[in-house]
Amino acid sequence: MTKYLTLDTDRCTGCRICESTCSITTEGVLNRAKSRIHIYRKDVLILNQLFCDQCDEHLCIDVCPTGAISLKNCQVRIDRNLCDGCGKCARVCNKIFLTPEEHFALMCIQCGACVKTCPENALEIKEKECLK
């Protein structure tokens, strides 16, 4: 099975606690710019929540020139040792982010830390048929 993160946009209030949680959990620092989930303000009452949802298209895998992005045990993953931060994946998909220094790409790893700290219970890890 493939795990993926989902977000209920009606529940999400845009507090960005998920962003701080993510950067602390995955990068060990408090820096929302190093989060793998981002909440942007699009309009007066509209938020834009972006994070890898393990889609079936795999454009990121297709464009990655170093083979850093691949399917591993049914999950799309980025191998930091192979990623050179070229940013091609982030250009074809706005759910992948580059670290501020553009050293490497960041993608949700379904650790579930943000699910636990979301005060609105807007986030959830779900499972679907294994990605191929």
Binding site: T13, G14, C15, R16, V44, L45, I46, L47, P119, E120
Partner: peptide
């Protein structure tokens, strides 16, 4: 029309008004 919150706030007191084309927190 939408409930919003400030950064790092678990209370989300901002109630977004949306009616007759008028929108605001």
């Amino acid at each position: 029309g939408k409930i919003l919150s400030c950064g790092e706030c678990p209370v989300a007191c901002s109630k977004g008004y949306s009616r007759h084309g008028v929108q605001m927190e």
